[in-house]
Design a protein around this nucleic acid. Structure first.
Lengths: 347, 347
DNA sequence: TTAGGAAATCGTAACGTTACGATTGCAGCG
DNA sequence: CGCTGCAATCGTAACGTTACGATTTCCTAA
């Protein structure tokens, strides 16, 4: 209930002076500042979001646009540490984080328009970038600060945080080759998105360098839940020339694949070699011999917010980009040659 | 950029009339309503959140206060479908959902005070209830609508959504007894919170009814990540009189326990019987014989938002409470007698 | 023809904040 | 003693919206 007017009345000061005192304005006498702060503290004054937003245009809210799965099954656990990292980072600097979920039915551009119109955020985080993503132009035109999670092939400069999916897929494929695999299956999360495209590119590069043919039937697209992954991999195992290596999209894809293997009495590391992305370190606890690559998604979330706040503070500054490489679990050798294992933040 | 003033100017109307027309006020002529809406639509008008909030006090924002893990490891995957359910439900009715994360260092009451002062939400969802939770009194005093996820022993009426933890733990314990277990280990997530207390109560009731003694050393408290769960269960297995049954707190606790078992060459369903809570259905895909109880957390999130919106619309109405029971995976028999397996929503 | 009244529209104020220019009080100086 | 200049404080307006009462328009009935 406490507002500037009440504090001003209590101290027989003007609202203006109180407002200035609370932000240590140099125009107001130090002893007055102290008195004001004492009262503000006592009555538990916190500036009203909306009054301030209306006047300054700043809302102290950041919005993350996240795709939500509508199926019964989860498909991406990494979103949880990502959200945690973002909310904590935002809170540290006085921002609050709002989650705007989009469903597969939504038109991404149209729902973004709505979001922009409501002017309820100082900045946006957008994810699931697609090739030539139209949202980037829209956001640049509107002049609202934003950071994307994932790069895309758009002819414009914008800040992003990305995962070096191409390199990771390349390394993963070479690891499998190092175990002697020649027929390597690849799980891709969503057909159109930029992350999957990058993974595919890394896979293709590794295969081409090794002179191995690419069998399209070994490349799986789709939202891999545990169930669909199990069904997909089971189908591959049932074929006349089954894969001997598999690169999983994430921990849930892995669980599905392991399930399919188990049903056939096959073992990872013996019958089929597996490398997986796993940002929750869940696969470390499975009794299975698997190569694991993980990224600290909370750090990614942190970085996204950090870049966004930089952008808000300095909208015309140079565009920062960060690439996360993550690391393969130590103790494993990559095939032909070593790959770097340290987490690199490249500006 | 579009606001009421611009629309009014374009149509040579007053701002008041435009405002009324847009919400189908009976005072304004139908043809005017049509003209106004046409223009509003064309320029993509969306009411400014803050202007409206300042005037009406309604922000169209709901805030969920969620504890965030600060360790490297996840400890509660169920939060993800919960968040998904809440954001989707909120969006359906025009609300947006803001996530306010608290860390273990935070004073729950103090950070709640801050949150209330900022008046940035029309209602709150709070979680991780503790015995005699002081936040309830604070919220009731402030008169802000809220719904808790979890009941607690406070002498006041408030709306909540809860999981019937006591019954679930009771049933789980009896299931293990049905497999012949007499020494049953119990994993509890957080010592003080209400959910763990209820689980403990269900466990104790089942043990008492069966005339079995309770060994405190078999009851584990703490934030069970995969690692800590593995360490804890390993210690139990190493003891002179190890447990033959285990009720896990969640899927991650399960993975840790399975890891501990695997290292000793033991098998679930043979050497130790395991029942677990698993709201992600992850354990179904593990090659292990485990009893699984799951709850549709997205539905829980949905319900939380629904009750909160009811509360906002009707702050003085009767207090609604919902209890989720979830279900054990079908095909398994409980020990001495059957337990109900259907999901029951009890008002 | 005009008073009465309903229908439609308008003007003003207010929510809480901040920006900006105006005003006050006072010490120092010629 | 009056003026200048600075430090401290104040007053007003505005952000976009809505509530409420005032005002205009226009139709109907005496």
């Amino acid at each position: 209930m406490a507002n500037l007017k009440q504090i001003a009345a209590e101290l027989s000061l003007s609202v203006t002076t109180v407002s200035r005192a609370l932000k240590d304005g140099p125009e107001v006498h130090p002893s007055t500042v102290a008195r004001v702060k004492e009262v503000a503290n006592r009555v538990g004054y916190v500036p009203d979001h909306h009054g301030r937003a209306l006047k300054t245009g700043r809302t102290m809210t950041l919005t993350a646009v996240l795709p939500m799965e509508t199926s019964d099954y989860l498909s991406d656990l990494a979103k949880l540490p990502l959200i945690e990292g973002m909310t904590l980072a935002a809170r540290q600097t006085g921002y609050s984080l709002s989650i705007y979920s989009t469903t597969p039915d939504d038109d991404p551009v149209e729902s973004m328009r709505r979001l922009l119109q409501a002017r309820s955020a100082d900045g946006l985080i957008i994810t699931r970038m697609v090739s030539g993503d139209p949202r980037i132009k829209l956001l640049l035109d509107q002049g609202i600060p934003f950071v994307t999670f994932g790069r895309t092939d758009v002819d414009a400069a914008y800040p992003y945080v990305d995962i070096d999916n191409e390199q990771i897929a390349y390394d993963a494929t070479r690891r499998l080759m190092g175990k002697g695999c020649r027929r390597i299956a690849l799980q891709l999360l969503v057909a159109k998105d930029q992350a999957s495209a990058a993974r595919l590119k890394g896979y293709q590069r590794a295969m081409a360098e090794a002179g191995l043919p690419i069998d399209q039937s070994l490349i799986g697209h789709g939202t891999f839940t545990m169930e669909s992954s199990a069904a997909w991999f089971d189908r591959l195992l049932a074929s006349s020339d089954p894969p001997t290596g598999l690169a999983c999209a994430n921990e849930l894809g892995l669980l599905g694949a392991l399930h399919a293997l188990g049903r056939r009495g096959l073992e990872p590391g013996r019958d089929v070699h597996i490398v997986t992305r796993d940002n929750t370190r869940l696969s470390r606890f499975l009794p299975a011999n698997i190569g694991v690559h993980s990224i600290d998604m909370a750090a990614v979330g942190h970085k996204l917010i950090e870049l966004l706040e930089d952008r808000i503070a300095n909208p015309l500054g140079s565009v920062a980009t960060v690439l996360f490489e993550g690391e393969f679990d130590p103790g494993e050798q990559v095939g032909p040659e070593e790959v770097g294992v340290s987490q690199i933040l490249k500006k």
